[in-house]
Simulated assay, not measured.
Amino acid sequence: MHIDLSGRTALVTGSTQGIGYAIAAGLARAGARVAVNGRDGGRVEEAVRTLRSETGNAEILGAPGDLASEDGTGAVIRAVPQVDILVNNLGIFGATPPLEIDDAQWRQYFEVNVLTAIRLIRAYLPGMQEQGWGRVLSLASDSAVAIPAEMIHYGMTKTSLLAVSRGFAKAAAGTGVTVNSVIAGPTHTGGVEEFVRQLVGDELPWEEAQHQFMLQHRPQSLIQRLIEPEEIANMVVYLSSPQASATTGGALRVDGGYVDSILP
């Protein structure tokens, strides 16, 4: 399948590293003009330089800004006023005993993981509808469906993103704009490595630590390994393409078979 996104502008939030970086690279390789976002302007500039070198695409720009604030969101929108492909990847996660999650932490997780996506959809969806083409994608997680006991607050936000995506897909009905969520399974990123170490300790070599984590905490996985960020990016690039024109309002799984259900 040849995916050509030439002439399209994409914004990927939280894209200086991990899954977001892999998505930005995948979209750039497909020919899109890609805006890289992060809170730290220096890290954004570094990611832009590296992506240009790795992908051979010179049309990569920086859109720094803290999307958890209205001012930061405004800065990003000013940097990229028109977007054809919006990828809401930004998110925070961490393990906290359920009864120790206080009100402030509940609010923080909702504001960072959910409200940032809603703000950007509100900003960019009207322009997509007006031109009759657009793609809105939000990165959810297996935790949206199989809520982990050690991070209920994170799971709640990812469940919310499924609802947000389905609702905005209805709002965009018949306009040529598709809105979907991607259910990512346990993925190998720097942040996840730290999370794995929190749960299984620092003593084991990484391969053994990963193996123990999957056995003890994610035994449902059918591939029995962490997913690589590029594997998530492949699904996002496809859903961003003209070939995915009949897929909307969906929750597409790239979870390694983790969720034990035929449907999300």
Rank of each mutant, 00 (worst) to 15 (best):
M214N: 02
A251K: 01
E130I: 13
R29Y: 04
A140Y: 01
P81C: 09
V44Y: 06
G7C: 13
I262Q: 09
V182H: 00
T248K: 01
D40A: 12
R33D: 13
F110V: 13
G257N: 03
R49E: 15
E207V: 10
A58L: 12
Y124C: 03
D4C: 11
L137W: 03
G91L: 07
G127D: 09
T248S: 09
E111C: 13
P97T: 12
F168G: 01
S143P: 02
T178E: 02
Q131V: 12
I227A: 07
V182D: 02
H2L: 15
R135D: 06
L222V: 14
G176I: 08
L86Y: 05
V196W: 03
V200T: 03
G14V: 15
R119Q: 04
E208Y: 07
A30W: 01
I118A: 07
G176E: 05
S221Y: 12
G91C: 08
P148H: 04
I60Y: 02
G72F: 11
S160E: 02
H188W: 10
R166D: 06
T248Q: 00
A104F: 11
G256W: 07
I232D: 10
T178Y: 00
G201P: 13
G155A: 02
A79C: 14
A123Y: 05
R33Q: 14
G31Q: 08
T50E: 14
Q129H: 05
I223T: 08
A140H: 01
A32K: 01
A140V: 07
G72H: 09
V83L: 04
G250T: 04
S245Y: 13
L162T: 03
L115C: 05
A144T: 07
G127W: 07
W206H: 05
S221W: 12
D71A: 15
L204C: 07
E150N: 11
E70I: 15
P126A: 05
G256M: 03
L263Q: 06
V114F: 02
R135M: 05
D40H: 13
M235C: 15
R135A: 06
G65Y: 10
L86Q: 03
